[in-house]
Design a protein around this nucleic acid. Structure first.
Lengths: 207, 207
DNA sequence: TCATGGAATCGACACTACGTCGAAAAACTC
DNA sequence: GAGTTTTTCGACGTAGTGTCGATTCCATGA
């Protein structure tokens, strides 16, 4: 349940430190092969060459391991999205760079992220992590939408925060579903731009 | 694991039939209060006034109960979407009716659907259910997209199936996230229409 | 009316996974 | 090399799942 390492461990990169990293590494390896729910504490412990009860010296639970892995990931998740989120107008290239970075992360760590998302309802620390991530993205994207609308660059529409939330939902769901996230980037670029800038006149066919 | 009722039960709407319905009813009730993962077989059995081991006479597992509930729901899920999916062009009213029906279902049975979706990876029968549902929607929507494009009613863009998949993903994610699905309908209508029909000229500000 | 067989019920058991505790071994510190 | 801190583990208790065989219920038709 807790985010921090177990009750033991003070300081100094000693033996136990290697063990802790071994557990994390084992978790990462196993997650590449099967979903979080199928991984047992026995396996995690065995992978680090310690007994099951020793595992609890390092982490409070399976979820605590996931949280630790996620912690190292959080920075990466917003990587390369600065230019897009701070920019303005339908800057296709910037959006593509942002989505590409995200897709790579999903390819490499999809099981971890998906596992965390699946376990989030019913596990406060994971729910917070997800909520924080979403909020950060929605916040910045909503601001961008407001700016664009004020500048006449984007059509009016759903409240900025709502629209931004839908964009975030779409990304997450699409990447979670996709077998090959990177293959989806181009289409996501198109679709997100349409969500934000796509205006259309109902009666007339598109030229 | 299995979809069908347990190994017992032959014919005739007798005592056991009432029990079976009592279990389903109990599940429905409990799902209104807490997520699927927090519901135990003990509770389901207790709700139907039988012992835990008697439960297994009726269903193979907790998941089998969910599958049974879902079975009754599958028809509803596509309800009122006919006019939209069989129609053509940006028929806002038809889309709104379709989405409204879906939103109502999510409000009433959100926990059930969300629980099923969460348990789907790692549980073949649920995964199949989800895949079938998605496929059915994607299939029809993709056909609609192709028709519209051929008729010059919609701009070119992502492959119809991919685009339809993204629309489906968005709906599911949005409703799963939302506290009040029905409040989202109007915005979803706008966004989906933009995804399908929204064209925009990059350099020029919107008139 | 009662025997027979399927429907329904349950207690006892076996299993898996989780998490805790306290005692011991290892490693480090002075 | 005594004392402290870190690390390890076996034993235990708990919760939930699923199975088995014995038993009871009950409709039916001989």
């Amino acid at each position: 349940m807790s985010t921090l390492p177990g009750p033991g461990r003070r300081r100094g990169p000693s033996k136990g430190d290697r063990r802790e990293r071994a557990i994390l590494e084992t978790a990462r390896t196993l997650l590449a092969r099967k979903p979080l729910a199928d991984i047992t504490i026995d396996e995690l412990a065995a992978g680090a060459d310690i007994s099951r009860s020793s595992f609890y010296f390092y982490f409070d639970s399976k979820i605590a391991v996931v949280v630790a892995l996620l912690h190292g990931l959080t920075g990466e998740l917003g990587r390369d999205s600065g230019p897009w989120l701070e920019g303005s107008g339908p800057d296709e290239a910037a959006l593509r760079r942002s989505l590409t970075a995200l897709a790579v992360l999903w390819r490499e760590q999809g099981r971890l992220i998906a596992g965390a998302l699946a376990a989030a309802p019913g596990c406060p620390p994971l729910a917070e992590w997800r909520a924080g991530l979403r909020a950060a993205h929605v916040e910045r994207l909503a601001a961008r939408i407001s700016r664009d609308r004020a500048a006449g660059l984007a059509p009016d529409g759903p409240a900025p925060r709502v629209l931004a939330g839908l964009v975030d939902d779409l990304r997450t769901a699409a990447f979670a579903t996709a077998a090959d996230p990177e293959a989806l980037v181009d289409d996501l670029v198109t679709v997100e731009l349409r969500m934000l800038y796509g205006d259309f006149r109902i009666p007339h066919p598109i030229r």
